[in-house]
Design a protein around this nucleic acid. Structure first.
Lengths: 206, 206, 206, 206
DNA sequence: GATGAATGAGCCTTCATTCAT
DNA sequence: TATGAATGAAGGCTCATTCAT
């Protein structure tokens, strides 16, 4: 069953309004007014402004987190030597999977990135960063050799943060499939080279 | 004469409220209530909620942009060979200067980064990214050798974006001076290595 | 369909409040409180205090100005001799038409006359006076005979001003139809006699 | 002793502000701000906004009412035949005296006429009109001859109202002494002729 | 005389939400 | 499904006025 036409139009208009003014600045009455329907109509579909935002964001936010978690688990399940050989949860396959999903649901991630202040999604990216940060350190500790200095947590935090920022810039902007993929690969290579040096690992073929 | 005590307390409380709820979500009444004064008292100091935000942000936002612009101009004034030797406007000296300033005025940049939606500062970081992006391409064109491929603008955009994100993470969080400096240097080295590869330049000592 | 009962009650109460306190002194909250509704209810009908005032005033103000302009145009279209014979745009037919309309929409004109300070209607009467003043002088110039002195513009201004004041006093106060009409006629005769003398015209039968 | 310079400047600025925005719309803080002083300074001179308006208006409003009353009393003290011979309380001498005073204190009367809504002076003109109306009727009753119709009170009210409007237009506008006087005389003649007809009196030399 | 910080009440307006129809 | 009138709370802001200095 496809969603009702009214519902679909609400979604489209809501995305526009939220992106333009942010969750807090967006006006429900403005959304429905532009659609030529009334607030009552809206409340037949959702019970609040927040639940509308949620409906737009939640499925895709969850799915992306799942993709990330799945790849991470697969990686963690590998024997240690293989982990070293393939490196990092944010491995090529993982980032490509994430990109493949996110690029098809741009609006949801735009909302998270650009309009989620005041919702439960305002920390979504931070949470992703945190998980990646933790898995990075876990990995480093595993491969850390005697006498090697600890990984500077502040440094790794800001690097992971920048990495995700770069990645999501690719989602925010409308970029043709092919070029997007190329950029993801280059972004991956860019960071991988940097990480390997920080990890005291020899360069590898990615 | 130093600023009145009430004004100072308004500043402190405002920073807290803005950071917690964003510019739009922040309530002037809430700010003054926590101070134990009335809205009228506030309007003796500022003529609007926006002008309060501005007062907190503008001087430091301007100064940082100046520091950036100054370094960029200095770099552009260099003869071509020296530019190549020292590379990129976001060079080590520049980024250190910016850090030295920004770390002393964390609140202003936190406000820009975390609470500026709905103000004229909401594009501040984007604008910095854009300038850096342009100067990067300008530099690349200068050094581009025959037969070399153009720099992928999408890639460079997302990298610059990530670089600034990393940098400002350092500002957002309270980090001891010494460690902050170390991170800036490492961040610089991390990116410089990546850029040099993209620019087809030999590695250098930074 | 007739206007909603709430809207009608808003109108009635607004007229009362505006007349009592003037546009500036009137309080929207007071108006709705007396109606037993909330301010939100009001803003379902009008988008501002000014637009409420406008809705009460505009249609009738415009119509009266039209009636005046129409009569004036008719008069100006007459051949010169006939104009002299019938005299002045503020002629009997015109003033009677204006009275017939205005007496049925007293509230609108009361608002203009007694409560319009701070609105775009505050100069409505002055503008009418100005138009009549100009048409009066135009007429005088047409009939002016060689050697006759010019009409004193200050004098004619204050007379026109007084004439309109008298006329609108009739509108402000609740006066039975029949008596109102008689007064308009007498007012007309009163002024006509005076003007004819100033114009050096022989008395006429009006 | 002349008034302090600050006080004088308050007066000048207040007149300007009141005339521009009306009593209700005028802002005390705006007045003092333009003067470069503080509200505290103002409250050293007056105890309220209303009392400032009063100070500007009251002396001249009272004086003009006195001039009017004095002339009226003088007239009423005359024997009946003389009253008939000279006619009307608003006689030539009276109106000239009023003009002589009012023209020298334009600002006070401008305030009454244009900016008194919300003050105790908002009915000043109406009150003058009322007194004149009463004295007119009193006079008419005295001279009324058997079989003559009563003076239509509505008509006389609107005529008196118009007469005062004309008169005060002369005060509102800055008019050179000589021309103002001429206009008063002509205004007097204009109305006198009309009244005489309504009173069934023969024309006279004015 | 004058300052200037502060009050407290009030203003117009907008909002998400409800509910009888 | 949808209407649309209404709620009640909150918002930013301005005002005349006070008072310790």
């Amino acid at each position: 069953m496809t969603e009702s036409q009214t519902l679909q139009r609400i979604h489209e208009q809501a995305v526009e309004e939220f992106l333009e003014k942010g969750f807090r600045g967006a006006s429900l009455r403005e959304i429905v007014k532009k659609l030529g329907v009334t607030t009552g109509a809206f409340y037949g579909y959702y019970k609040s402004k927040e639940s509308l935002f949620d409906a737009l964001v939640e499925p895709h936010a969850r799915k992306l987190a799942e993709i990330y978690a799945t790849k991470l688990n697969e990686f963690n399940a590998l024997p240690q030597e293989q982990q070293i050989a393939m490196m990092s949860a944010f491995s090529k396959a993982g980032i490509l999977d994430m990109y493949a999903y996110a690029k098809d649901h741009r609006d949801a991630f735009r909302l998270i990135l650009l309009a989620s202040e005041g919702t439960r999604w305002e920390n979504y990216i931070h949470d992703l960063v945190k998980k990646e940060f933790e898995s990075t350190h876990q990995f480093y500790e595993m491969i850390q050799q005697e006498g090697q200095r600890a990984l500077n947590p502040t440094l790794s935090h800001i690097l992971v943060s920048g990495m995700f920022s770069s990645f999501f810039e690719l989602i925010i902007h409308e970029i043709p499939e092919e070029e997007g993929l190329r950029c993801v690969e280059e972004l991956y290579a860019f960071y991988m080279a940097g990480w390997r040096r920080l990890f005291h690992l020899p360069g590898d073929q990615v």
